[in-house]
Design a protein around this nucleic acid. Sequence first.
DNA 1: CGGAACGTTGACTGTCATCAATCTCTGTGG
DNA 2: CCACAGAGATTGATGACAGTCAACGTTCCG
Lengths: 198, 198
Amino acid sequence: MRTGLLVLRTELPDKRRQILNLLYLRDIFRTSFSPRLPEAALAAAVASEIWRIPSNTFETLPNSDPCLGALLSRQLAAQQSRANLHVAAIGSLNGEERVASFLIELALRIGSTSPDGIFFQIPLSRTDIADYLALNADTLSRIMSRLKARGIVVQKTRGRVLIPDGKMLRDLSPITDAIVALHGSAASTQAHHFSALA
Amino acid sequence: MRTGLLVLRTELPDKRRQILNLLYLRDIFRTSFSPRLPEAALAAAVASEIWRIPSNTFETLPNSDPCLGALLSRQLAAQQSRANLHVAAIGSLNGEERVASFLIELALRIGSTSPDGIFFQIPLSRTDIADYLALNADTLSRIMSRLKARGIVVQKTRGRVLIPDGKMLRDLSPITDAIVALHGSAASTQAHHFSALA
DNA sequence: CGGAACGTTGACTGTCATCAATCTCTGTGG
DNA sequence: CCACAGAGATTGATGACAGTCAACGTTCCG
């Protein structure tokens, strides 16, 4: 995909929904990445632009250009790693830690640094965020309220958020380093806000 | 890898452990599949045999043989899909459903069909299973006791288990179909025990 | 036989889900 | 411009499920 943000969403029998994965710029998605779950479907969280490549072409892509093959291989490895990280987040963090981790992820991916801190537009609805973090929407709302009360996040307008101090957020998540490694390119201006060395 | 069973394990600050992924026969693992989490490490659950391939060789493998490239590509897709399925399991199932899903997975992977049902040797310690399912070991023990009381699983000896009736187990997990699709090869004698059509 | 590791079980606690009431935004039409 | 409707978000009261801690069983070693 070229721009935008996609979610891989599924819905189990009892109206239990879960967002399995977020897909960002330059991520690769194949139908076969999605397990055969009921209602599993890709949906655009924000307007997105996608390149479609026929499956055959995709599988023989590396043959045409060795360098492309290596790139592809690394991209897929990074996505696998992100999926594993998400397992760790959902499986071993509590609500607040999950939300903090998610905010760090967004800040690295779509944040822009300003003198006041890191700004970004939250690209998902509350419900989608809750589904992504395996939390209830009500619980998510409560956690966000607590974070706002503590001044860790500041809500500017609907869906627009400011993180005044990356270090405070950093300390709320035990997996910050892994998130930075996977979502913050070395060149990212946001990454250093969360870096342990900063 | 060629034989055995590997676990990708991590351990966060407060002795919270999580098993991110199980690796079975013919699965592919690269260091870069593992997020940079504290203590992230591969460990053998049972004696395992592994092929090591230098990273460069790996990335250029597809160039040497187009057919191999396609195979590789599909294998990686299947593993991605399994990671996503595991997110769904941990994120949206309750304890009993997770355990049922895990038992189905094992039955498909390492079970052998007998007149009495499906037999297998549980290849992980209680603690590891709990970490894989994002449950507490005590809770896991309680759930297993309940399943035994209901006759859904029968414990033969330490770590050796019999599933008398696959259909009963099947109905305990809302994601059975997806598990069968990913872990049961079409040829597997176990797969039909869990199939909706059986 | 004894010790260590692992597993089980019960009583209690804490976190998160559920349900319901209220509030806030956003867009629409008078 | 305001009123209104509807969706989404917030908040509180309550309950269920899983986690914690501690005691006791079991298995498997030397």
